[in-house]
Design a protein around this nucleic acid. Sequence first.
DNA 1: TCTGGGGTCCTAGGACCC
DNA 2: TCTGGGGTCCTAGGACCC
Length: 459
Amino acid sequence: MSMIHASPGAWRDSKSSLHLAVESDRRPAVALVDCNNFYASCERVFQPQLEGKAVVVLSNNDGCIIARSNEAKALGIKMGDPFFKIEPFLRRAGVRYFSSNYSLYGDMSQRVMNVLAQFSPELEVYSIDEAFLNLTGVLRRGEAEADALTDYTLTDYGRRIKATVRQWTGIPVSVGIAETKTLAKIANRLAKRSQTLQGVFDLRRAPDRDAILEAIDVGDVWGIGPRYAKRLRQRGIANARQLRDADEGWIQKQMAMGVVGMRLVLELRGVPCLPLDLSPGPKKGIACSRSFGNPVTLLSELRAATAAYVSRAAEKLRGQNSLCKTMSVYVMTNPFKNEPQYYNSALIRFPTPTADTPEMIRYAMKALEAIFKPGYRYKKTAVALVELVPGSIYQPSLFDGQDRARSARLMKTVDRINARMGAGSLHYAAAGCRLEHWRMRRSHTSPAYTTRWQDLKWV
DNA sequence: TCTGGGGTCCTAGGACCC
DNA sequence: TCTGGGGTCCTAGGACCC
């Protein structure tokens, strides 16, 4: 997909001036590189006139706000604000809004990651817009040639990372550096918010660490959600400094956080407990769920939607070369509505682990019929594949009548055609057609500038 | 009319084994 | 006086992340 194929391993390039320096500090160093307002920034890359303007990106179905440019944040627009409620305000305030365009964001993400990979041999792609880089010793690799330059620090290196990503992809990022991932998160937060730091901050070199940690609310520490934050505050632990200095025994016992809490506290103390995950294995569960563009009352429509989601989930399953042993199917009404509510799910255990779309659809339809109740306005159906096993080793059922090899070949062909011709080019009739009214609404989509020839930007 | 989607890990408790 | 000890696997639920 990606159109940038930057040469890997630039960090090794001895001709580059990047590595001609020595930082005497030998402490471990990990950087968190985080894209600023990622989805909003992606939209801006191809519409530079939006620079400096308030931009927001909407969730699926144009439901709520999921990304905001700084200008939009300054206007008080909140994450999760329902679009239909604030649309009038957005219009009045001249905020530009976009339906989410995941093929664009996914592709831009890959480009950013490709650039980052050149700055460290150890990169963990943590999410669509974030990556951890191990920078320990990165500057020392070029030591032999380092006579010319002294005082080149990881802060300089971080600035170089930031500038390169910006130049090669158009995406602004912030870089936080520290001894551990948890501290790097904090450093990144500061880098992003401070006017003076210009987007790069090395917490290891900060003389006033205690004061910095004290200014971080305990709920803003990575790994502390609303529940834990509340419990910690009840014990008088209100900020990151206090959490760092908390009593270990109490953390382990009282908090029901056990090892999670302990790791977190140690990380705050500068002891790395969360190693970089350089090559994440296959997913342990795969889900596909989507709210409908319009409420659904007919079983036939629910069937089509469910079949469509099964087929998407099965595609992901095959994409990582796994088979599924257990699948669940959910249906639910709209909890925001003051109308009769219904929620139900069914668990399906396949006699033989499978990744065969038609087989999975057959089972899902049976399950769906069992949980469907007429008379409700359904809002959403979901398919979750749990209990996945590697495609290579599985225990076939003794009475399995299917020609597994044949169906695997068929699936492979279907996937290949869709990869080449575009997602959904070939799909199952059970999944209905594109125009059905339960399909997702996306009324404000930008073009897929980087993944569709028709949408290529003209210059 | 209209409120997102997709993951991970850990713990406790029960069943079961020798 | 007094009824063992140690282990695994599974499931449900809770918490977190982006």
